[in-house]
Design a protein around this nucleic acid. Structure first.
Lengths: 231, 231
DNA sequence: GCGGAATTCAAACAGTTGTTTAATATTATT
DNA sequence: AATAATATTAAACAACTGTTTGAATTCCGC
């Protein structure tokens, strides 16, 4: 056969990624995972050591690429020597890369929602490691970038601003997730779209609109609250 | 006895509110609920018709007061005839009342996180009704209020702005929830506090700081993007 | 092709889940 | 006080959970 080398271990990871994303950790049984991967039930405990660990590895495999893409996008903006980057370009890089990573691939939004959901639950597993290795690097990189392009910003002020931006991003991701994970014709989704027409657009356009809004909104706030000191 | 009239139905509702809030829907068993309410297991199916419905009624009972408080707070601001209210006062009312309602009472943050979590899950039950009766009224009331105090704002622009504000609110609620629902001494919480010192404050101070920040941040953005047309 | 390790498999395990049953107790009505 | 409606109870139900077992199979270096 062609791709016979798809080991059961990877078949499980793939099936798990898709299933966990769409139904959450608790609502996927080990048997369901095994069936979707065309694999025996015991495989989950043989290759990984239990359902929890499988979940854990699924999360890691996916989020590592998101982290690296975010950091690369920032470097690209900062390394653009043609013109000195401003607050807007840093924010735009953060928002755009995050949205592309989360909403760009199929099931991406579900996956990020799942992550958010599971991070606030008693499955503390090594969520601390996840936090330190995945979340913090992005946070720090963009914080220092902001400090570079707007030197008058205090660390304290940056933390508040970053929180506001990330809060907005999550919210718009959640909105898209709600639209796609529910029945498109359902009552609730209809109302949601009617009150927020951007949701009716295709995903690329939605990403563009949201990126532009968050960037404009946040940049305006920063420029107004912490204006650049003119030399 | 004094308050003997505590029917099992209400005892169950009380116990369920507390338990659901701290552990989520799936992680609370019917037997656990019954035990906490000092009531027989079957009571949950006799008085309500299954666990799902009990959960549903718990949510409603709690959120109705939150909705009414939010609407009252807005009326109070708008009815203040001493001086014409501005964008800032409307936003402040929205943020402050929401934070007080969610973080003010014990287990409040858990409850709102639970709500957010469960709304994006296959428990579609009549979440549509919840959306229409609880979320939309608040959304509409504050939208029209914003339009009143800043007439040049288009409906479309208001929707974007409201999304940004609500996104920020949820994020700060989620941060507090994470701090309180985890072990205070845990690795992750320590990092979180170190990177965001406001979390180390008592809850009243946290609410005040967050309210002021979101209000200032969002007002600055609105004033800059959609300035008042001077007559 | 043989032998030993690595993998797959059906079956069983030990719990827990939400819900139902049928008997009992309580309350309200006549 | 007797009757009917309502509540409460312990026990059982059937279905599902994640995990383990031990035999059967496949793989791979020799």
């Amino acid at each position: 056969m062609s791709e016979e080398k798809h080991e059961t271990k990877e078949k499980l990871l793939d099936a798990a990624e898709s299933l966990f994303a769409s139904k959450g950790f608790d609502d996927v049984s080990v048997r369901e995972l095994a069936a979707a991967a065309h694999v025996n039930v015991a495989a989950v405990n043989y290759h990984f050591q239990g359902k929890e660990n499988l979940f854990h590895q699924v999360i890691m495999r996916r989020f590592v690429v998101q982290r690296d893409r975010s950091l690369e996008a920032l470097e690209e903006v900062l390394g653009n020597t043609r013109e000195k980057p401003g607050v807007a370009s840093v924010i735009k890089a953060l928002v755009e890369e995050y949205l592309k990573g989360t909403l760009g691939s199929p099931g991406g939004s579900s996956f990020m929602m799942l992550l958010a959901r599971e991070m606030h639950s008693r499955h503390s597993h090594s969520s601390s490691a996840f936090f330190k290795e995945m979340v913090m690097p992005i946070f720090r990189a963009y914080s220092t970038a902001l400090m570079d392009v707007r030197p008058c910003l205090q660390q304290d002020q940056i933390n508040w601003v970053m929180a506001s931006i990330i809060g907005q991003i999550h919210h718009f991701v959640a909105r898209w997730h709600k639209k796609t994970s529910f029945d498109e014709e359902s009552d609730e989704v209809q109302i949601l779209i009617s009150v927020f027409p951007a949701l009716g657009q295709p995903i690329e356009e939605y990403i563009r609109l949201v990126t532009d809004h968050i960037t404009a909104f946040s940049t305006a706030a920063i420029d107004s609250l912490y204006p650049e000191v003119t030399p």
